[in-house]
Nucleic acid binder design. Structure first.
Lengths: 142, 142
DNA sequence: TTGACAATGAGAATCTTTTTCGATACAATT
DNA sequence: AATTGTATCGAAAAAGATTCTCATTGTCAA
C-alpha cells in the first residue's frame, strides 16, 4: 500500500495533533478497507471489534480531522450517509455506480486534464480538482 | 423555457397521479428558479408565500414523485441537504463549485461521450449517465 | 508529580428526511 | 345531490445521520 502511518503521524504532529490509539485504529480500518468507501457507522462497527469502548463521536471527530488534513475525503453517493476514502495524491480515480445493485467500483484515469484548461478560458473558473460519477449497469446487472 | 406544465401534467396522468394545486405550485417554483438548485426547505419557503398552509411533508413527497417520473433529479453537493433541479433531456450540464464562496455555476457540455465507449470495453460497465463536479475558484475568489 | 491542555465517551441536541394517520378533495357512480 | 372509492394532504411523530456538550481521562513537558 502507498499509505504510511508514520507519514500520517508526522502530518498530525505538524498540526499539533497526536496519534492516539483511537485515531490509529480508525486509520487502520480505513486503510484495510481501501476501495470500500466506508461510512462513519461502518468504521465504528469495525473499530469496535478491537476497542469496544470507542465512541461514535470519536469516529466523526477523527474523520473530520483527517479530512481537514487532506488524508481522506468525503464522498457523496446517493446513499443517505457520507462515505470516506483515502486521498491518494498520486492517482485520480472515479466511480462507476450501478443503478441496479448499487455496487460502486473504482476506475483510474486522468481524463479531463485538458478540459480544465478550456474551462479556465471559457468560464474564468480555475479548476483544482474534479469528481466524476458514471451511472449505469455493472457486468452482473446488464 | 423548455419546460411545459401541460406535458408534466400528462406525464402525471399517465402514471395515475393528479396535478394538484400543491404540485403545481412546487413545480412553478422549481421552474422559476432554474439554475438555483433549491433544497426542499427552500422550496417550502417559496411555496409558503402563496399557500401558507402547505406542509413540508408534501414538498418531500412531491419531490420524490417528480424524481421517480424523471422530471427532476437530486443533487448532492457537500451541503447537508439534498438539492433538486429540472431534468432536461436535451442538454447535459455539469457544475463548477467554488471552494471559497461555495457558489455553484452550471456549464453545458457533452464531454465524455466517447469515453463511455472505452469504459464499456475496459470495465464491462454500461454507462447510462454521468455527473461531473469541478472544484476550484470562481472568477471572484481567485 | 503536577499542571495544562488535548482527546475521549456518553448522551443530548440538532437537522434533514420519512412515516403514520386521520382528515380532505375530487372524480365517477348512483 | 348524495355516496363511494381513492389519491392527496397537513400535522405531528419517528427515524437516521451528524454535531455538540460536558465531565472525565490521557499525555507530556516542566
Amino acid at each position: 500500500m502507498t499509505v504510511d502511518l508514520q507519514k500520517i503521524k508526522k502530518k498530525l504532529a505538524n498540526n499539533n495533533y497526536k496519534m492516539t490509539s483511537q485515531r490509529k485504529a480508525i486509520l487502520e480500518k480505513i486503510i484495510e478497507n481501501q476501495g470500500s468507501h466506508l461510512s462513519a457507522e461502518e468504521i465504528y462497527e469495525q473499530v469496535k471489534k478491537d476497542d469496544s469502548n470507542i465512541g461514535l463521536a470519536t469516529i466523526y471527530r477523527t474523520l473530520e480531522l483527517l479530512c481537514d488534513l487532506g488524508i481522506i475525503h468525503k464522498l457523496n453517493f446517493d446513499d443517505k450517509c457520507r462515505r470516506y476514502e483515502l486521498d491518494k495524491e498520486d492517482e485520480h480515480h472515479h466511480h462507476l455506480i450501478c443503478f441496479e445493485c448499487g455496487e460502486i467500483t473504482e476506475f483510474n484515469d486522468d481524463i479531463l486534464e485538458d478540459f480544465e484548461e478550456d474551462i479556465k478560458e471559457e468560464h474564468s473558473f480555475e479548476v483544482i480538482d474534479h469528481r466524476i460519477k458514471f451511472y449505469g449497469y455493472c457486468q452482473v446487472c446488464q
